[in-house]
Amino acid sequence: MMQKYLLTIASLLLLSLPVYAVQEKATPAQKQQCNTIVNEAGNMPNSQLDETYHKVLRVARCVKCANESLESSRAGLANDLRKVICLKVLHKKSVKQIKSDLVESYGPYILYEPPFSIGLWLVPIFIFIVAVILLVLNIRKNNAIHSNDDKSLDEAENARLEQLLKKSDEEKS
């Protein structure tokens, strides 16, 4: 019981912390560094940071020009967002952290990776399963009807069928 209370209090405290979603405390030197990286296609200090930086840019949408990633967009807003991401990378934030920061300000729309939602991922699978079940039921029903058809031929009918087949064979030859 006590633990439950403590957990609730802890999570409430976490929630009440101020949200510094995109804003990063940056030194003028870091800002300058990011300006060079973004505006003059400069390089990150090491390849690991460079990888993080480009990983984020590839999956982030330029919110002003919806079908371009931040990597390829030339819009002014994309440039500003690249600078913000660059500063975060210099602050050693992980790809995951940076993505969640972006979502904090712009919503899941800013990422090209849609978040998991039951509606989006499970409904199509559900519809598929229902369709398969309906199909199987339908096939079974049809089979049942046709197997009855077979049985419904009695001996007289069978004899007549035989006769007809024979007749048509004779006509051919």
């Binding site: 949200v19 510094y20 979603a21 995109v22 804003q23 990063e24 919110v63 002003k64 807003l77 500003d80 967002l81 600078k83 913000v84 300000s105 712009y106 919503g107």
Partner: peptide
Amino acid sequence: PDGTIGLTYGVTG
């Protein structure tokens, strides 16, 4: 001036 506060508010224009 550099738009950083605007970006925390999710400003697009």
